[in-house]
């Protein structure tokens, strides 16, 4: 099975989009670390890039890769190999290639310029976010036969998680501002992988602010080991659940 992944990976890492993505991340990271007067400000800008670019590229690239590989997948399925295996190999290769791009493009500069706890968290959540978004993209792509429709859905998902969701959260927080919402907001972050990544990094970067009024609760929760398990666990769920749904749907569908 891993042999198949190896061959697919060999193909993907030669893909122009992946190379461009790696180059873009590398260029931006190096520029930021060199231009900003301190590395924490560079990390901050990297966070913004991470929260926008990683989900967007991961999702769009995975979707297009799936549709472009459709005939190849069919050919593979004519071989004595199960559908779930084929899809999982495709997922694995896509995920690995995107993670590699992240590690080279962002990981190496962070390691060189700011190898602290914040940098480490940034890369780790970046990896989680990449894999989660790839899962979501596969699910969306498997579910819709039409390429344009699939890409449309994935773009909407990105827009929703990156922007709309936070808007809804803010609206809720203002609508119900008379109620104690601290614990509720913790639950809300779990329903958006981008928020989950953001909050994890925020806890490393803005500890002082988070120790304020509501922040103490977040810090107590996310900073504790149960919190780390919670964040990690939910992120894992964001990776595994869409992947499972994608594989289930792929196992049933007509190609």
């Amino acid at each position: 099975m891993f042999k198949l992944s190896k061959y697919i990976l060999y193909d993907i890492i030669r893909n122009k989009v992946i190379l461009a993505y790696t180059g873009f991340l590398l260029l931006v990271s190096l520029l930021l670390f060199n231009l900003e007067e301190n590395s924490s400000k560079a990390i901050l800008s990297l966070l913004n890039i991470q929260l926008i670019t990683i989900p967007l590229i991961s999702m769009i690239f995975s979707t297009i890769h799936y549709y472009n590989s459709y005939e190849f997948i069919e050919m593979l399925l004519a071989q004595p190999i199960s559908r779930t295996k084929v899809l999982f190999c495709e997922y694995l290769s896509t995920g690995i290639s995107l993670v590699l791009a992240l590690l080279i493009g962002m990981g190496i500069p962070v390691l060189l310029y700011s190898s602290g706890e914040t940098g480490f968290t940034l890369i780790l959540t970046g990896i989680g976010l990449t894999l989660a978004c790839t899962s979501l993209a596969y699910w969306a792509a498997v579910k819709s036969r039409d390429k344009a429709r699939g890409i449309g859905i994935v773009l909407l998902l990105w827009f929703y998680f990156a922007l709309i969701y936070d808007g809804i959260v803010m609206m809720l927080l203002f609508t119900f501002s008379d109620y104690p919402l601290e614990k509720f907001t913790l639950v809300l972050t779990a329903f958006n992988p981008i928020d989950l990544a953001r909050v994890s990094i925020m806890l490393k970067m803005d500890v002082s602010a988070l120790m304020g009024y509501t922040g103490a609760l977040y810090k107590d929760f996310f900073g504790s080991s149960t919190g780390i398990f919670f964040t990690g666990g939910i992120m894992l769920l964001w990776i595994l659940l869409p992947l499972y749904l994608a594989m289930r749907s792929f196992g049933k569908k007509d190609l």
Partner: peptide, 16 residues
């Protein structure tokens, strides 16, 4: 005005 909104810190929405 609403301290709970701290949870949205560093969100893209907030930057915008």
């Amino acid at each position: 005005e609403n301290p709970v909104c701290l949870i949205l810190l560093r969100s893209i929405l907030i930057s915008i």
